[in-house]
């Protein structure tokens, strides 16, 4: 797979992978960019070019892993991006999935217990994911920022974080990843179709997108953020 380069036009990115639309929005890029290249828009909006390319490339290619010199951007940027993604889930994806689920439910003919069950499953899943996001916002990200500050100013880490480490703090992703897959697969394979097909497709489209975005999000946390933080943790221990 070819990876995006600084000289690629932003329009090309979207034409080749339209899932990147919300991703570029998180950087503050909005449509109408004419023939501007990635390099140009990053410069205009004051965005770290390597950081932007790393994010769009991990999103497009699951196996993509940036070379060391490209991970030199600050974890602060990464955390800012991750929090924006959490907000996107809370403010847009969850409500959107729910709107579509409600429509699907209201299209149901006959007994709808099974669809209700899907709804309960979704609600449980949402609860769990929200807890995961909160955990990161309240524990993981503040710890990383404190660690970074201590490292840059050559100060001690606040006492509160004495027993923290990135590996023990970042919650697991397997659970949340598995459940959204299961939700999708149960509807596809096992649910009696007592509903309107188009409404169900719309619901599934949203779930597919959610799953894709979540997997990418987890990859960024587990691969890029984790590695950056481990390096700082190491440097502090041996500094």
């Amino acid at each position: 797979m070819n990876h995006y380069k600084p000289t690629d036009k932003l329009a090309k990115l979207i034409h080749t992978n339209h899932f990147l639309l919300p991703v570029i929005n998180r950087f503050g890029f909005r449509l109408g960019f004419k023939d501007k290249t990635v390099e140009q828009v990053c410069q205009e909006q004051n965005i770290d070019l390597n950081f932007f390319l790393t994010i769009v490339n991990t999103y497009t290619d699951e196996d993509y892993f940036p070379q060391n010199e490209l991970v030199s951007f600050s974890p602060v940027l990464l955390i800012d991006y991750l929090i924006k993604t959490h907000e996107y889930y809370r403010n847009y994806l969850f409500p959107e999935v729910e709107r579509r689920l409600e429509r699907l439910l209201s299209s149901c003919q006959g007994t709808c217990d099974d669809l209700q069950l899907i709804k309960s499953f979704y609600n449980k899943y949402k609860e769990e994911l929200l807890k995961h996001l909160e955990e990161e916002e309240q524990n993981v990200f503040p710890y990383v920022l404190a660690l970074l500050k201590a490292y840059e100013n050559k100060q001690a880490l606040p006492k509160k974080y004495a027993n923290y480490s990135m590996k023990s703090t970042e919650p697991e992703h397997t659970n949340v990843d598995q459940k959204i897959y299961d939700l999708k697969n149960i509807v596809i394979k096992y649910l009696e179709p007592t509903y309107d097909d188009n409404d169900c497709n719309e619901f599934l489209f949203a779930i597919f997108q959610f799953e894709k975005d979540l997997l990418d999000h987890a990859r960024i946390e587990d691969k890029i953020l984790l590695i950056q933080v481990l390096e700082i943790e190491n440097a502090i221990q041996h500094g």
Binding site: D114, F121, N185
Partner: peptide
Amino acid sequence: KLGIKSISGLTVYAILN
């Protein structure tokens, strides 16, 4: 066989069936 990994997913399957 089922393509369902989580316990809650398996539970939904069991109830559906």
